[in-house]
Design a protein around this nucleic acid. Structure first.
Ligand SMILES: [Mn+2]
Ligand SMILES: [Mn+2]
Ligand SMILES: [Mn+2]
Ligand SMILES: [Mn+2]
Lengths: 239, 239
DNA sequence: TTTTATTTTTAGGCAAGACTAAATCTTTGT
DNA sequence: ACAAAGATTTAGTCTTGCCTAAAAATAAAA
């Protein structure tokens, strides 16, 4: 038997931990169903949250006591149903805010993340509702990340692949840019490599991926090629 | 010798205390120059912040140590120049956010305050800048309160008077609605009594002010008449 | 001018969330 | 199988911002 309503509001820190447990526990394709999630280590959480491992342990115990995570000492954490819902809610806030800052206030694609990171914890449900409405209930944010719906459903996932894993000759559209590094985002923005952009993979070499974007050709270093997710032209036929 | 830059960012609580010291230390006409301000008691701050007096004392000591207030035990506080600037900055955030929520996101006039109260501490200067731009750098928020400029100048004050203090027969425009009580705001909104609305004072009676608004006549109870600030028709001629 | 009431401050605590240093698991390499 | 290395947890502190109860100062009344 679960408690279906969350009595006390969670702190900013608690919300951020839950969000990171979801993100780190999901594959690189971004969050999916709770079942497809794997346990997350104390260390990875510590790195992500910019905090020492001992602090993580402390917080995990509290979240476990609240029934938001399943935590087994030395064995990592995973979200409970309740924790999963909180994480998705925070993710929805984050991504809606990013989309809104970009579309309504002209924020650069690469500068939305930091602002969203703070605001996600401080907006009301009314605010969430109104910006979602203004945006027309988008399914993806400016980086191509999926936005959970108001009822916390995830949009259907398209079968994308990392640029670094494509075979030569393949064409497709940038679907997602999976980094939060300001300068990487800025670099990619300057090359026109944002969600929706068309590209072709010319060849894979040791240093990275040689690609064609419009009339330009670039050798995109491995570290960047790995964060670019591509939606293949035509896409795979199922059946 | 002052420190001109604030090294560490202030906490939400600290910012709110400074804002309230400014508000409580200014007359009912709203904040003006620092010199026109009077010292604020521990008790009034405690009431306003919904906190016990002992907590106020503790915070005031910290703010004094930071050079943001002048605090003399048993004698009340006032802002220093530095504290005054912080307070105005927070006020600017608050009022710009209220205006933006109202104009851009269709928030009701009476529901903007609560959201602004939280967000004021969590937006970046970039955000402030962009919503100010979007709004066209307004000088007043939806309640008629003055918005400090980006350089923290206050707009020129118009000589308004409380409805409860007018002589009968006088006509004017609602300039400011100086309450944060949700239900009072809601009531006034339903009567069309928001900034810009024209009204005439018919007579003052013990229970309050009898007024005419368009074709309607109301007997506005004292408590409400006191929060309605009116800009007199024609206004006073100086000279 | 005393006494009484009100306001304010001090003293001592508590919960969050972080840290360091020291213990304790787990995993790895031989 | 076993020791060394690496990861994680425990123990003990710190800061922030709040609280209660008791002491002290100020203001009001007699
Ligand atoms: Mn982001
Ligand atoms: Mn965050
Ligand atoms: Mn307000
Ligand atoms: Mn506030």
């Amino acid at each position: 038997m679960h408690k279906l309503t969350n009595r006390t509001p969670l702190s900013e820190a608690q919300e951020d931990y839950l969000k990171q447990v979801l993100l780190l526990g999901s594959g690189g394709e971004g969050p999916g169903r709770l079942e497809d999630t794997h346990p997350v280590s104390t260390q990875s959480l510590a790195d992500q949250m910019q905090v020492k491992p001992a602090s993580v342990t402390g917080m995990l115990k509290k979240l476990a006591a609240l029934g938001l995570v399943e935590y087994e000492a030395y064995r990592g954490v995973r979200l409970t149903e309740a924790g999963y819902r909180v994480a998705l809610e925070v993710l929805r806030h984050h991504r809606l805010i990013e989309a809104y800052l970009h579309e309504a206030l002209g924020y650069g694609w690469e500068e939305v993340h930091a602002e969203a990171e703070k605001l996600e914890h401080h907006i009301s449900e009314a605010f969430e509702e109104r910006i979602a409405e203004w945006l027309g209930h988008p399914s993806h944010d400016p980086h191509g990340d999926a936005i959970p719906s108001a009822t916390l459903e995830l949009p259907p996932t398209t079968p994308n692949r990392r640029l670094s894993a494509l075979e030569h000759g393949v064409r497709g559209l940038v679907a997602r840019v999976a980094t939060q590094d300001q300068d990487s985002l800025n670099l990619l923005a300057h090359l026109g490599l944002k969600p929706g952009a068309a590209l072709q993979l010319l060849e894979q070499v040791a240093e990275g991926s040689r690609i064609q974007v419009g009339k330009e050709r670039y050798l995109l270093p491995m570290s960047l090629a790995q964060v670019l997710w591509v939606h293949l032209e035509g896409g795979p036929h199922d059946g």
